[in-house]
Design a protein around this nucleic acid. Structure first.
Length: 364
DNA sequence: ATGCAGGACAGAT
DNA sequence: ATCTGTCCTGCA
């Protein structure tokens, strides 16, 4: 396959990719971002579930259950009504496992069509493109408290997980943390231990599998004790804390173990919201706020209303005359008030407060 | 340089 | 059921 990126297709939907990517949703860290002139580009490795094609490509010695693809999205900074996407297969190089299996030149036209349909489905899911934003805006504009959010958040959509396990770990990492720090930690975890896949335009990393987390050490000391090395500062190879996750390291390990032994992630998609909430709440490092983030950004439960300190302050300010409201009360209020729009209402309220200067006003 | 922001959780009321 | 102190790190 000598050509560079394949296919050049468009989505015609209202979405601000940059705003959506940078909005701090805990589904995943932002994708690789390039700004070229008036164009924003976002690139990421995703794994496609296309069983029939994998079987065809797979050299029986390798157990691969999904097809790695590099996606590159591009959008004109002045037109949020469409974006284009390209995709690319991994580079074939010696000693790379894909040298054996990625015989993509033999793919039939039908196979290509299957792959391209799957990509459209994935992008539709990740950017929630079936959600009717215009209708939502009518709902917002009808409510005088919510109406101002529209102008600050035009084109903002949910950024849904490409991988629910990654979302669960990212969300645990985000607890009592800043956006900057948790995204950096997740990037380090991917870079250190994720599957490295080479493309002509560079290497990308997948997210480590749950089984890999069981092998990670929690701290540099634990790692040094185990193999007897006295490491230089920053030279540790296999402990979570060196990625800046702090005391969350044991939570990430134990949650991974439970997701291997006790919980089938795929079952969660077919649960109702309350059932899924109670299940996810049982994971270590997951309280009510993180559980709602996981359900909203990881599984698309749009009736979730993740209530952090900022949402609490905003709701107190807008709806309770500034009177302090507990996080639990905030959650109850959001669910009751916004129904199926709770997740989007939370996203829009947070960004409205961020962009409009309201945050500074209500910080006290 | 010290102090603070950000949720979960264990232990107390 | 609701409150308090502690956890780790990056940034004023």
């Amino acid at each position: 396959m000598q050509c560079d990126f394949m296919s050049n297709s468009k989505f015609n939907s209202l979405i601000n990719l940059n705003l959506t990517q940078e909005s701090g949703q805990t589904s995943q860290a932002p994708w690789r971002h390039n700004s070229i002139g008036n164009i924003d580009e976002f690139s990421e490795l995703i794994y496609l579930k296309v069983p029939s094609i994998i079987e065809e490509l797979n050299d029986e010695t390798i157990n691969l259950n999904s097809l790695p693809i590099l996606l590159k999205l591009s959008q004109d900074k002045s037109n949020y009504n469409e974006f284009a996407y390209l995709y690319k297969f991994p580079k074939k190089i010696g000693n790379n496992q894909f040298s054996n299996i990625m015989d993509v030149e033999n793919l039939s036209k039908n196979d290509i069509k299957t792959i391209e349909n799957e990509i459209r489905d994935e992008l539709t899911k990740i950017y929630d493109l079936d959600f009717d934003l215009e209708k939502f805006y009518k709902f917002l504009l009808d409510d005088e408290k919510l109406a101002p959010s529209v102008e600050f958040c035009n084109g903002l959509r949910l950024f849904i997980a490409k991988d629910p396990f990654e979302c669960i770990i990212s969300s645990i990492c985000s607890a009592n943390n800043s956006i900057k720090r948790w995204t950096q930690s997740i990037d380090k975890i991917k870079h250190n231990w994720g599957e490295r896949i080479e493309f002509d335009s560079g290497a990308f990393y997948g997210f480590p599998r749950p089984e890999q987390f069981l092998d990670f050490f929690e701290t540099p000391i634990e790692e040094a004790d185990y193999d007897g090395h006295c490491y230089e500062i920053g030279c540790y190879k296999k402990n979570l804390k060196s990625c800046g996750v702090g005391y969350r390291a044991p939570y990430m390990k134990k949650a991974s173990q439970m997701l291997i032994e006790d919980i089938n992630i795929d079952d969660i998609f077919s649960m109702d919201y309350d059932e899924a909430f109670n299940l996810i709440l049982g994971l270590p490092g997951v309280g009510p706020k993180v559980a709602d983030c996981i359900l909203l950004y990881g599984f698309g439960f749009e009736e979730a209303f993740p209530s952090d300190v900022w949402i609490k302050r905003i709701v107190s300010h807008l709806y309770f005359d500034g009177e302090e409201i507990s996080a639990d009360k905030t959650r109850d209020f959001g669910i009751e008030q916004f129904g199926d729009y709770a997740g989007y209402a939370q996203l829009y309220l947070f960004h409205y407060a961020r962009k409009s200067g309201l945050m500074e006003t209500i910080k006290k």
